[in-house]
Each structure stands twice: as structure tokens, then as C-alpha cells.
Write a protein that binds this DNA or RNA. Structure first.
Lengths: 205, 205
DNA sequence: AGCTGTGAAGTCATTCACAGCC
DNA sequence: GGCTGTGAATGACTTCACAGCT
């Protein structure tokens, strides 16, 4: 299998969501690249090309089976298994993430949260116990989550990343507004909540 | 001024953050494209090209004046004025956003929040009063915010967008996991909190 | 007829490489 | 010597356009 462009991976996530909407709204068994493109605000050709990287899923003259395509995308995205994750920082953002629909639906399960605020330690967010950060290493080594989610203030982001790497997570999603460095073997993705506001400001200006 | 590639606009936001970190950490007056590229995890040439779209800010042999460059980027991004915004959905995500550092620092000021939950209406998030959604139109018409931030459940996202458009906001940032449609004159940006988790899952698989 | 899959063409973005300046 | 600014070269991604299947 050829190397997949990152834009394609990002769009797959969009297609999945559009397919779920399409299924819920129409319940039709097939969707064409044209229709899916319209839903995802994309050209039909790029939809077909994106999907063709992973095999020939379409039926000429009919389109793509909605159910089969959904399953394929989940398999491609490695989303047909449960993913354990830990949360560093038990503030509003961490809470919001845990409550984000799709978080659970996509198979992500938060097995522990960590915070340095003594008022939070020992409490729970939903089902998830909050531990002091000093327990991060031992808890991660015991529960072996692949994902670490950083939702601490910017100043503590690098330190959190270091702890997560040392404890053995394989991927880090950094929601803090700070650049962090991790070894190349770790998958690092940054989410910046205000970037799109800045971009919108640019386009308004 | 030539048309600016969107990737450039996105990187400007990163450069701004890196410059602030650089200034706080080193207090040096100049930074080279090499150094800034290292901080932003980018090639030095793209740093120079990005900045050159907007004029010649650099000093050959020395680099870029940190302070001047910061000011220039803020001006380019239209961030040297206050931006009023309203929040639709006063849940954890809305709270997290209001508390996000840089939100205020970048000049974004939330002038009202709206929610349909009667237990939230009349309360406040920090300084921000929570109104029923039925008051959205009148409040927006009165306070004239340019930005609407959607932090409601997916099912209510389109409805929220419609109300915001009708009330006259010029830009919408949609944090709900749903595609929304707005007229072309409205600047629409989507933020998907779980997309980067999905992408990380792909790269782990 | 309608739609997919894909090579070829086209477009856009990044990196190279170097002249010119401090 | 070190660094910027930028045309040229390269590379990456998207769209076109059509053969081929149902």
C-alpha cells in the first residue's frame, strides 16, 4: 500500500461522520462519490481517489455501500478496537473532552486522570478517578494506555509530555497552547482551540 | 498584496506563539528564520517565504526583530483590536474556551452566552451572563459581536448557526461534531476535538 | 445510463540555492 | 560570515477526463 497523504487521512474522518449522518437521515444503502463529496464539501474525484488508496470499495453504476464503507473506514483508521487513554489536567477542557460525543463512540476510554490540585485528587469525572501527577508513571505502567491527552496550562505541557513518554504512552494529543517536543517514535498531534478563531479574524480583516 | 495560501495563515499563528515563547525565554532582540523554523518545526525557507508575503521585515545578517515581527503578525491577523463574541452552549466546552489562555490575550471578549437549560440561564460563567437561546437575536443585535462560537451538542449545531447568521454575526467557529451550512458571506471554521485522536489512531495502527 | 477507478494534466505549496545586503 | 528575499526547481495534492464495469 502506497504512502497515504495526510490530507486524505484527515478527510477520512470527515467522510466517516458524513456517512453516519447520511445513514441516519436517509437510510439509503448506497452513496455516490458525488453525494458524499457534497456532504463533505469536496470534489467527487478526491473522494474516489481517497477511497481508492485502500482498495476498490465502490460498485460502478451504484456508488458505495454505506455500511461497508463505514466499516472499511473504521478499520483503516484503526478504530475497531478500544483505545485506552489517560488525561493529564482535570480542568474544564478535560471534562469537555470526556463528555464529547464520539469520544466514547470511537472507542476511546479514559482509564485515569491526573491533576496536581489537591482539591481534585481523589474525586472523579464521571467514572474516571483523578490521581495526583506523582502517580502518573505507576498508573500508566499498570493500565498501559496508548494515548496521553494533555489538557494542562501551557507552562506545564512539556513536563506532562515528558512524564507520559517516560511512562510509555505511544501517542500524545496536546490541547495546551504550547509547542512540546517528544521523541520521533511518539505520535504527537496538537489541537489549538484558538487557532481557528485567529484564522477567522484574519479572513474578517 | 498577492493571495495568501491558507497554510501560511495557519503557520502565522504558530509563529506568533513561538515568538512569544522565544521572547519570554531568551529575551533576545532578534530571531533568525532558522531559529524560528526550529521552534515551529518548520523549514527555514518556508518561514522566510511566509513572512515575505507581507513585506520585508528581516535584517540580512541579523534576522527578524522579535518585537517588530510580533506586532506585524498581530496586525496581519487583525488581532490588534478587541473582538466581541457570543457563546452558544454553556457546557464544559464553553467554559473551557472562556478559560483558555490567549483567548482573552488575543483580544476576544465573550459578551454573552446562551443555553436552553433553565438551570444555567441567569447564572454566569466568570463575568459572562447566560441567557436563554430565545434572547440570542436581541442580544446579538444589541451587542453586535462579530464572532459566534458554537459549543452545543451536534444535533443543535445547525439550528445555532442559523440563529447566529440571522442575528448578524460575521464569523462562526463550530466546535460541535457536525457539519453546518452557512451562507458564503459568513466565515465558517470548524474545530473537531476528536479528529486528531482519530489521526493518531491511524498512525498507531 | 450511471458511476467507479485511475493515468494524465493541472494547480498549489515547499524547498533549494544563490544574489544581495548588513 | 551570517542572514534575508526570491526565482527556479521540485514535490505534493487535486482535478480532469475517460475507459471500463454493472
Amino acid at each position: 500500500m502506497r504512502k497515504i497523504p495526510e490530507p486524505t487521512v484527515l478527510r477520512l474522518s470527515t467522510y466517516r461522520r458524513c456517512l453516519e449522518d447520511f445513514k441516519a437521515q436517509t437510510n439509503l444503502p448506497f452513496v455516490s462519490s458525488n453525494e458524499l463529496g457534497r456532504l463533505a464539501h469536496r470534489n467527487a474525484a478526491i473522494v474516489r481517489k481517497d477511497l481508492s488508496y485502500f482498495g476498490e470499495y465502490g460498485v460502478p453504476g451504484k456508488g458505495y455501500s454505506v455500511d461497508h464503507l463505514l466499516k472499511h473506514i473504521l478499520r483503516i483508521m484503526n478504530l475497531r478496537r478500544e483505545h485506552r487513554a489517560v488525561l493529564v489536567g482535570a480542568g474544564n477542557l478535560g471534562r469537555a473532552l470526556l463528555g464529547y460525543p464520539g469520544f466514547k463512540k470511537l472507542g476511546f476510554r479514559v482509564v485515569a486522570a491526573f491533576d496536581n490540585d489537591p482539591r481534585k485528587v481523589g474525586r472523579k469525572i464521571g467514572e474516571v478517578a483523578i490521581f495526583p501527577v506523582s502517580k502518573l508513571k505507576s498508573e500508566v505502567e499498570r493500565k498501559k494506555p496508548a494515548f496521553g491527552l494533555i489538557t494542562v496550562p501551557a507552562a506545564a505541557a512539556q513536563e506532562s509530555a515528558n512524564l507520559l513518554v517516560e511512562a510509555g504512552v505511544r501517542a500524545i494529543i496536546n490541547f495546551a497552547p504550547a509547542r512540546v517536543w517528544v521523541p520521533p517514535r511518539i505520535v504527537l498531534r496538537n489541537v489549538d482551540l484558538t487557532r481557528e478563531l485567529e484564522v477567522a479574524s484574519y479572513y474578517l480583516g
